[in-house]
Design a protein around this nucleic acid. Structure first.
Lengths: 237, 237
DNA sequence: AATGGCATCGTACGCCGTACGAGTCAAGCG
DNA sequence: CGCTTGACTCGTACGGCGTACGATGCCATT
């Protein structure tokens, strides 16, 4: 009923790849590893897009038979989960605990989050269907720790976290969807101006044509932080 | 190269279903229509989820052969596009143009948007991979018209729209992903408390366990609007 | 030399999207 | 009236997918 967690193998027995005591990797081709599988899956997703990831293709790139993957992984879903979690892991240093620049820390963490996802646009389309993985939880934990030690009251913490979270997610997914869809700027513009009679305000504001996405992201984030600061009584100033 | 727009048929010739002048629908079973196809696709998605929609299954429910669908529709992608756009259409009345309650209007529009999507959680997982359809554009147009006549300066309009948009999208997608993933609250709680040693702050704040999603959405939205009001010099008060 | 578990893989099954072309039927026209 | 034409339906088939199943190789231990 409930989905199996982690999915790195549970079907029959053997927890995982026991380290062979002697003669570690003498093979001509490197042997199949969960790490290799996930890494290859990520580059395959990067280059071929989300539909380009196939168990057979993935195995080919690894120089293995398709069914060999299933020793290390429960099913294709698990490959997606692992690739997503890998890509979403936070690799930076956590903000210094004594930092006075809470707001800068938060902005940095959220911009890093967005950048990590935009480096792999397929992650945006994978995210909506999955439960929270460890990388996401770790980032949420970091965020809430930072906010908490910035003086946000316990009662406001959840709303603050969810607000920031939602904003980042929405901005990133929207941005990534432009990255993914294969129509180029010219086609989009043509389509827009063709239909601009129906959408005059959008057309006039050039909403979809300007492309300072990073700046817009930062500006909106600042507004949200301003609003939060106003309510929580002056943290983040 | 560029994806075909609309996808309701373009392969060979005939624009669409010409209305037969006489003897309109004498068949025992109703004949195949784009409207019927899309409506059935939506209920199929609602009941079976995103993987439950299959051209063969869809045709079955319509009492037709699988290949008959392709007369009305370019391919499966087009079915998804049409179902999504149907579900995302705004059916309410536009806010009265003379309204003094801009902020209330905006909140109402965005809550309606969120509700429309949550009624069909699959829409959240479909959205990240598609370009902007007419329903989305119409909602963006409505939003920007409202903001514009609320006195938001032209220069701030885009950032305001994107901020609100991103927030709503993120909140909705996040919420829908909880709806979609098949693990129930008990499993989630168990998983969380099992790992709570790694995520103490999250655990303490009960971030994922409280479930006043609607209230949290509204609160965060208010913060964002506060921040926007502060910058745009007092609209939305 | 025999055993037993880890790891790999070939084959096969059922399902998918859809290309192709044949079939049906009514309207239009000589 | 017979014929053509075009709108619409669908049966068959093809290549590709995820993966269940069981055979096989390999190595450490006994």
């Amino acid at each position: 009923m409930a989905a199996k967690r982690s999915g790195v193998r549970g079907k029959r027995s053997p927890r995982r790849k026991v380290s062979r005591p002697s003669a570690p990797e003498p093979r001509g081709e490197a042997s199949l590893t969960l790490e290799r599988i996930v890494a290859t899956a990520v580059t395959l997703l990067d280059t071929e897009g989300i539909d380009g990831l196939t168990m057979r293709r993935l195995a080919d790139r690894l120089g293995a038979g398709a069914m060999s993957l299933y020793w290390h992984v429960d099913n294709k879903e698990a490959v997606f989960d692992l690739a997503l979690d890998t890509v979403l892991a936070y690799r930076g240093a956590p903000p210094r605990t004594g930092s006075q620049d809470w707001r800068g820390d938060v902005v940095h963490m959220l911009e890093d989050w967005r950048a990590s996802m935009l480096r792999h646009p397929w992650s945006a389309s994978l995210l909506p269907r999955r439960a929270l993985g460890p990388s996401i939880l770790a980032r949420l934990e970091l965020l809430s720790k930072t906010l908490s030690s910035a003086g946000v009251a316990e009662a406001d913490l959840n709303v603050a976290i969810w607000s920031l979270w939602n904003y980042v997610m929405g901005a990133t997914i929207t941005r990534a969807s432009f990255e993914i869809s294969d129509e180029d700027r010219a086609a989009a513009q043509q389509r827009l101006t063709c239909l601009s009679e129906h959408y005059p305000t959008i057309e006039r504001s050039r909403l979809l044509l300007d492309d300072d996405w990073d700046g817009a992201f930062r500006n909106g984030l600042d507004f949200l932080l301003d609003g939060l600061a106003g309510h929580t009584g002056g943290a983040f100033t």
